[in-house]
Design a protein around this nucleic acid. Structure first.
Length: 423
RNA sequence: GGAGAGUUGGCAGAGUGGUCGAUUGCGGCAGUCUUGAAAACUGUUGAGUGUAAUAGCUCCGGGGGUUCGAAUCCCUCACUCUCCGCCA
């Protein structure tokens, strides 16, 4: 959520930045400013009336103590009229504040200076490409055929016990999952992230804090009796650890990592590009999250991007890095890098990580602040990234490392899997 | 699930309807003392809004009510703790 005062003071810039996203409802900006004007006027009137009421009450108290009951009663009579006005104004203020809030949550984050203007994924900027596409043998298969050929992931069994998009990992397939999780967590820890285990269900306030609620309500599984949501990503619980927190400047940066399953409803997607592991309702992911000083966030974004790339390099995968254009970026992000690995059998790029700087957008919702050395509290910047999401990494490994003898395991993973071939 | 107790500033913990944004202790910060530090002493120390700066206004779990006036009384919701029951 953007700060109203920032919008007021930087109207032109806000509009200019929103155009990078090709954001349609630009009239929101002026509506916000107008409603905020109204809010301020109402607030001022209410404050003035309250001041009078407070003074009267104090006066009455004093008179009562001195036993001057008649004088007190006289003032009481006067204050009664004020009471109605105060009640009326404060009702009005609540309505205005609600309106303002409802408008504010409709405004996406402002793209950072490097973000290319654009709408479609084709307008994303390819920042770099690493490695070469794997050369496969003639009988090479897409991963959804490999998984059943080697009996390592069972989609039908998952459908039986739950539904489509909830695979069952078996034998070496299950072991590969566990190996990847440990591999990612070990690397994150070595990179200075603190490993956390967090709840997989979150309350409404947490959903709001990171921006999933109210607009993306339908994308999360919702336990209505308890009003709890299954997390779509560890970003939600891990970032919300710092909701309503005022940190000390020297506590920054905060670097946390967590492995969690992720649950996404993603209703209404069917077809070849969501086959197999490409899109699931439940999947595993290791996430890295940072809370940093505002001056550092873009530097940290580069560091996080480089870190994710180092994982992909170690796994020997051919990948590219995209800087998302304004229109393709998430609602809450100021700048995002997507990492895509090459799927040799599907002949397409698969997104395996998304690293974003949210600047103060989440922090403002979370009331996540730090107290600077000057003694002034201000909003911190938050960032997060997948490091990494498992299913598409597994898909890429299966496809790119397949041989007529079986699927080889990338060298760096062997000490985690305990085997070097799936056959 | 049943019964009871509670929710106050970074933490602990007071608070009779009126001068309580809130006693006090600890912690933090600054100073005195000291070669330096500790101890001791003194001062200072919540968050927001608003202003040129003051002032003013809001906040004692959330919401509502009573009252001229609510941290304090009433209603309601949420959460926490204790005991009992059930249970990995």
């Amino acid at each position: 959520m953007l700060q109203v005062n920032y919008i007021r003071e930087n109207r032109e810039k806000v509009l200019e930045r929103l155009s990078v996203r090709h954001f349609k409802q630009v009239e929101l900006v002026d509506e916000i400013i107008q409603i905020d004007d109204e809010r301020r006027q109402t607030q001022t009137s209410l404050d003035n009336l309250s001041a009078i009421a407070n003074a009267s009450a104090k006066q009455i108290g004093e008179l009562m103590r001195n036993g001057k009951k008649e004088e007190a009663d006289a003032i009481k009579a006067e204050t009664t009229a004020n009471k109605d006005k105060i009640k009326h104004l404060s009702d009005q203020l609540s309505t205005i504040e609600l309106q303002l809030h409802n408008l504010l949550v409709q405004l996406p984050n402002l793209p950072g200076p490097l973000v290319p203007s654009g709408i479609t994924p084709e307008e994303n900027e390819v920042v770099l490409t690493y490695g070469e596409p794997a050369v496969l043998h003639e009988q090479a298969l897409p991963h959804w055929e490999l998984t059943s050929k080697y009996d390592i992931i069972d989609f039908e069994l998952g459908t039986k016990i739950t539904g489509a998009g909830f695979p069952v990992y078996k034998g070496k397939g299950a072991r590969l999952q566990r190996a990847l999780i440990n591999f990612f967590l070990d690397h994150a820890t070595a990179e200075g992230y603190r490993e956390m285990q967090v709840p997989h269900l979150v309350n409404e306030a947490s959903g709001f804090g990171t921006g999933q609620l109210p607009d993306k309500e339908g994308q999360m599984y919702h336990s209505t009796v308890d009003n709890l949501y299954l997390i779509p990503t560890a970003e939600v619980p891990v970032t919300n650890l710092y909701r309503d927190v005022i940190l000390k400047e020297e506590d920054l940066p905060i670097k946390n990592t967590a492995y969690t399953p992720c649950f996404r409803r993603e209703a209404g997607s069917y077809g070849a590009h969501v086959r197999g592991l490409n899109r699931l309702h439940q999947f595993d992911k290791v996430e890295v999250v940072q809370v940093v000083h505002p001056d550092k966030s873009y530097q940290v974004l580069e560091e996080m991007s480089a870190y994710v790339q180092s994982l992909l390099k170690e796994l020997g995968l051919h990948f590219r890095v995209l800087r998302l254009c304004g229109g393709d970026m998430g609602f809450t992000s100021a700048m995002t890098y997507d990492m895509e690995v090459w799927s040799a059998a599907q002949q397409r790029w698969l997104e395996v990580s998304s690293v974003s700087n949210f600047e103060t957008y989440q922090a403002n919702r979370l009331k996540l602040r730090y107290k600077g050395n000057t003694g002034k509290t201000q909003l911190a910047h938050t960032l997060n990234g997948s490091a990494l999401a498992l299913p598409r990494i597994v898909a890429a490994i299966l496809e790119n490392y397949q041989t007529p003898e079986g699927i080889r395991i990338p060298e760096a993973l062997v000490k985690y899997t305990g085997f070097n071939l799936i056959d």
